[in-house]
């Protein structure tokens, strides 16, 4: 049995009248990759944001490495090794690429003044991007000047460069061209091969998700409606479940 990195039990989250999550449980082990599929508005991103400490759950419990934790803030989750590529990418358009890569964990010059070490951040940013193989002319460019796919690459690079133990990816390939998507998938597989990182990926492409994930989970209207090892299901089967639910909802 592999070692469990992250577990969430019966997570409930309401925003006023909207119940985004109605008791969702999930788990992922070190070296494992979990794919989450599901309709728009199913609550996938909300689940991610609870796991990063951005939202607080209305009910339910999160466990990291088997121990119950309260993810009271993003900093707390980060301290536990949880990193996330948010669906909205969480980038600041007016700041340079390297400032974005180090946002809220800036490199500082030594005591006493603790000023920003722009040069070190620039160099580390350059190295991190070269490592992934993404085409970026200069780390001094403002993020707002980049294409959608490039911005996504920056967001992925930021999460990966931070030495995450638990990596959450909310549609990391959404805006990417085939080449860039290939690069990111390569990167994810390399991370997976290390065997000590747990990865959760939200995606909308069924076939692709089944290909790179070990296990998949289907979320609909705030609940997990199906769960399977990737090898034991198919895109056709998953689509059939979604359709069945849809027809049932329309009929009822």
């Amino acid at each position: 049995m592999s070692t469990e990195a992250l577990r969430a039990e019966r997570i409930v989250k309401s925003f006023g009248h909207v119940t985004a999550l109605a008791g969702v449980s999930m788990h992922v082990a070190r070296g494992e990759m979990l794919g989450i599929l599901g309709d728009n508005g199913a609550g996938k991103s909300t689940l991610m944001k609870i796991l990063t400490g951005f939202h607080q759950p209305s009910a339910g419990q999160v466990f990291v490495n088997g121990a119950p934790v309260t993810l009271a803030s993003v900093d707390r989750a980060r301290a536990l090794g949880i990193e996330c590529v948010y669906q909205d990418l969480a980038l600041i358009n007016g700041l340079s690429i390297y400032h974005n890569l180090f946002l809220n964990r800036e490199l500082l010059r030594p005591w006493p003044f603790r000023l920003l070490d722009h040069r070190a951040m620039r160099e580390r940013a350059r190295a991190a991007l070269a490592d992934i193989g993404v085409n970026i002319p200069s780390v001094d460019l403002e993020v707002g000047q980049l294409s959608g796919g490039q911005r996504q690459a920056i967001a992925v690079a930021r999460a990966v460069a931070s030495d995450a133990r638990i990596l959450l990816l909310d549609e990391p390939l959404a805006a990417m061209g085939a080449r860039e998507a290939g690069l990111i998938i390569d990167l994810i597989e390399r991370l997976k091969a290390r065997g000590d990182i747990a990865i959760v990926m939200i995606a909308h492409n069924y076939a692709q998700t089944l290909e790179i994930c070990d296990r998949v989970m289907l979320m609909q209207h705030g609940e997990v409606t199906y769960e399977s090892r990737a090898a034991e299901t198919s895109a056709a089967e998953l689509l059939e479940i979604v359709r069945r639910e849809y027809r049932a909802a329309r009929a009822g």
């Binding site: 951005f54 600041i92 809220n104």
Partner: peptide, 10 residues
């Protein structure tokens, strides 16, 4: 620049 993104970054 982007309050939500800043908050998401912690």
């Amino acid at each position: 620049g982007n309050a939500i993104a800043a908050a998401e970054a912690g």
